[in-house]
Design a protein around this nucleic acid. Structure first.
Length: 114
DNA sequence: ACCTTGACGGCGA
DNA sequence: TTCGCCGCCAAGG
């Protein structure tokens, strides 16, 4: 399924599996999908996933641990609020202990798919 | 049909 | 190590 699903669909599958209180990056998802250079498309997919409540886009940030997509959450700091509500400490759009709560699909799903 | 933009990141200089 | 350019490819103008 995943192998035959469109790129967007695959992104949704991975993103929807991100546990609460954990975060990942666009690049990590892209790399897991076999397109490390297509991190941008992951972001674009997230943009289209706004209608999909199953996709916690707020748990996906850039590789610096910065809430770059915050802008797309109604124009307010809703994204940060959502993360903090899950126990994620955010300081001025920057996730504290980013690597500690980082959820790497390559590490968590390496044998479950593909 | 062509050009620009975009939730990023890799790789070269 | 830091800076900048290029790729990925979809959507909008």
């Amino acid at each position: 399924m995943s192998a035959n699903a469109g790129f967007f669909a695959k992104v949704y599958e991975v993103a929807s599996q991100i546990p609460e209180g954990r975060v990942t990056s666009y690049g990590a998802i892209a790399k897991y999908l076999g397109a490390a250079k297509s991190a941008r498309m992951v972001g674009w997919a997230m943009n289209a996933s706004k209608d999909r409540e199953e996709v916690p886009a707020h748990r996906v940030v850039n590789r610096n641990g910065i809430l770059t997509g915050k802008i797309h959450f109604g124009g307010t700091n809703a994204m940060q609020q959502l993360l903090e509500a899950e126990g994620v400490t955010v300081k001025d759009l920057k996730i504290i202990d980013f690597e500690t709560i980082f959820w790497d699909p390559m590490q968590e799903l390496f044998t479950e798919d593909k």
